[in-house]
């Protein structure tokens, strides 16, 4: 079920234009390995989710490709293979907390960003409108609430119409309304064809927003591919019958079964999403097996994510 780099999906074959390639990056802090031989390719137009629990090396990875942190080994290439220093002017970034000059207004802070990016000032006000801060454009940054700061960070990332957006936990610390607003904005941006790399520890967020995903834990890549193929919906079945072994064999011929567990008489396993309990009953009946307990539930992505990260 793991699609590694070498196995490209159809979508990727149709449109393989790597925007960012990460080749075996390793970063150590003393004895701790934050990122461990990480390989990733992000193609144009993808909304790529970097998914992992807290402390899995997501931010360190982003810090490395953005030139803030020096990797111990490995390399990365931006756009057409050139990894020159000015790549960041073509990238919009939110990394961890929003960082602005507290004594300057929203407009002044964005003007500074436009100045560094050598971008025009004409899209400052429309961007503030997009993130719904236009009414506070002349307030100093330190008077902003956390949600507003996060939205201003998003505005900052959009200055100069970047080809590529890097968003590290973009909904961190926001209330539910703020979260949905930010997600809406991200989806709006994605529709315009901008490539997005988004780090998150929230599965739900990745599932809702991203087209592709890479799961990392303790700096190691566990799985990567299209969201649907990695985080597929499966059905979990709990079953007690008078002949578990035979029933499993029968099922195994028709479906893909994984994650088999036995506890006493009860067996628990995952099965394809097109499975139905009616069919199971029919199959058991035809073969003279009596089912005394049957419980099916859809496994959430959450469980699957936990499973992937637990076993490795």
């Amino acid at each position: 079920m793991y699609l590694f780099d070498s196995q490209l999906s159809l979508d990727q074959i149709r449109n393989t234009m790597p925007v960012l390639q990460i080749n075996g990056i390793t970063k150590k802090y003393g004895r701790i390995t934050a990122v461990n031989d990480l390989h990733l390719t992000i193609n144009k137009g993808e909304i790529f989710g970097l998914l992992g629990p807290n402390g899995s090396g997501k931010t360190t990875t982003l810090g490395i490709v953005l030139g803030l942190i020096k990797a111990n080994s490995g390399s990365y290439n931006w756009f057409d293979g050139s990894s020159n220093n000015n790549q960041n002017t073509k990238i919009g970034t939110i990394l961890e907390t929003p960082n602005f000059y507290p004594y300057m207004t929203a407009i002044e802070n964005l003007e500074l960003i436009a100045h560094i990016k050598k971008a025009g000032r004409e899209n400052i006000e429309p961007t503030l409108e997009l993130v719904d801060l236009i009414h506070r454009k002349n307030s100093r940054f330190h008077t902003y609430s956390l949600g507003m700061k996060q939205r201003l960070a998003l505005a900052g990332a959009l200055i100069g119409n970047p080809e590529f957006l890097i968003l590290d936990e973009p909904t961190n610390g926001l209330d539910p309304q703020g979260i949905s607003e930010v997600r809406e904005i991200i989806q709006k941006i994605a529709h315009s064809g901008t490539t997005i790399l988004m780090a998150s520890h929230i599965l739900d967020e990745v599932e809702k927003v991203c087209s592709h995903v890479a799961i990392i834990k303790k700096g190691k890549l566990l799985a990567t591919g299209e969201v649907g193929s990695i985080l597929s919906d499966q059905i979990q079945v709990e079953l007690i019958s008078d002949n578990n072994g035979k029933l499993l064999d029968l099922l195994d011929n028709r479906y893909e079964i994984s994650g088999l567990n036995k506890s006493g008489e009860k067996i628990v396993f995952n099965i394809d999403a097109n499975f139905s309990s009616g069919e199971l009953n029919k199959l058991a009946f035809e073969n003279g097996i009596t089912i005394s307990h049957l419980l099916t539930k859809k496994t959430s992505l959450e469980q699957e994510f936990l499973e992937i990260t637990k076993n490795k």
Partner: peptide
């Protein structure tokens, strides 16, 4: 202290 050095780098300043 404002972490704006980091932000400047992210914005594209070398």
């Amino acid at each position: 202290t404002n972490k704006t050095l980091r932000q400047n780098m992210l914005t594209g300043l070398s």
